[in-house]
Write a protein that binds this DNA or RNA. Structure first.
Lengths: 188, 188
DNA sequence: TCCTTGTGTGCAACTCGTTGCATAGGCAAG
DNA sequence: CTTGCCTATGCAACGAGTTGCACACAAGGA
């Protein structure tokens, strides 16, 4: 059900079409909740049917028409209700960790390039977060003083930054461990 | 498909029944991959049908019989193949982050108790990891010198510890932010 | 001219994952 | 002796999420 809520939040921040939402889910909101355009279109249709959203056909020039969605009163109420009920702390799912444990039954050194690839992806994401932070929150163009919305978006972004930094440090630890094991004789 | 691989790793570490696997997915492997017993039983059946696992009926006294699974040669090969192909870096899914951004459209202060609850859950998980680390890796009962399997399990556990520490620090940041906003006048 | 890229929406089929329920025996506490 | 918990396996139904494909039009480059 969380996709619904992520869509409500995103549409409250800014009304938009399914396509636009899909692109937001590649950045911004997508940093901590992912969805494909298929899923988004399907859920938007259902939410509209449930009266959570209003839709408006918008003609555009040089582009196909779009359906712009915005949050209706029941949608706002649904979000508010969800905010007041507890959600369970996340259960992490980390494929790479499974691989690392699995490497004990194969060749640990073969994982090195894979881990380096992940490290590079996280480094790039961190750089991306930091430039976004500069642009939207700490740079000269940022709203002064920041509103509640900016404050909350910023603290979420700081979480992303902390996550990436922690992950990069851990991947360095993993690489050091794999190199150490590569130097030692293999065996189960 | 990652559940299959997590099961292969877990059964290589120690053969066992669906029930036993389900319990491992509540600790150990479950720290970075979750699954319910339903899913596990279904996947075990499929994997056995695909020849990845061998099954053996084991009679027990005072308890129902169980089916003990162990990895067959094709299962080992499937794991090895997976280890050699790249997986995409994780897309995080963090419901609490969605809530925090959503709080801008409701009452931010109402989230405080929820965030505190999460903080407590992460604190408990960290304590649990640390005691497990002491028991299995850094304490006096740990194997000396550690084998490859221990080294890799340990580095994964260190990742869990780093994750929990980072998360607790971030939740403190979130709490400070929410308190600061609570002192200021509300408004969208 | 054709091919690719981008905007915009959507169906169909599938796998993954969750929830509720069912069965069945043993064991322990009230 | 009944209630509840633990071990142990499983079905059925649903919801969440992915993948592949399709259509339609516009713009730009080869």
């Amino acid at each position: 059900m969380a996709l619904e809520h992520a869509i409500l939040v995103s549409l409250l921040e800014q009304p938009g079409s399914g396509y636009e939402l899909a692109r937001r889910f590649e950045r911004s909101i997508g940093y901590f909740w992912t969805a494909t355009h298929q899923q988004i279109y399907r859920v938007l249709k259902r939410m509209e049917g449930d009266g959570l959203l209003r839709v408006r056909e918008v003609a555009q020039q040089g582009r196909p028409d779009k359906k712009e969605y915005e949050v209706a009163a029941p949608g706002r109420a649904a979000l508010s209700q969800w905010l007041h009920e507890p959600v369970e702390p996340e259960s992490i799912r980390h494929e790479l960790a499974v691989k690392i444990r699995g490497a004990a039954f194969d060749d640990p050194a073969a994982l090195i390039s894979e881990v380096e690839r992940h490290r590079e992806a996280h480094r790039a994401r961190l750089a991306h977060y930091l430039s976004g932070e500069q642009r939207d929150f700490t740079g000269p163009g940022a709203p002064q003083p920041p509103g509640i919305r900016q404050e909350l978006q910023h603290v979420v972004l700081r979480g992303g930054v902390a996550y990436e930094r922690m992950t990069i440090a851990w991947l360095d630890d993993v690489l050091a461990t794999l190199h150490r094991l590569g130097a030692a004789p293999p065996g189960a």
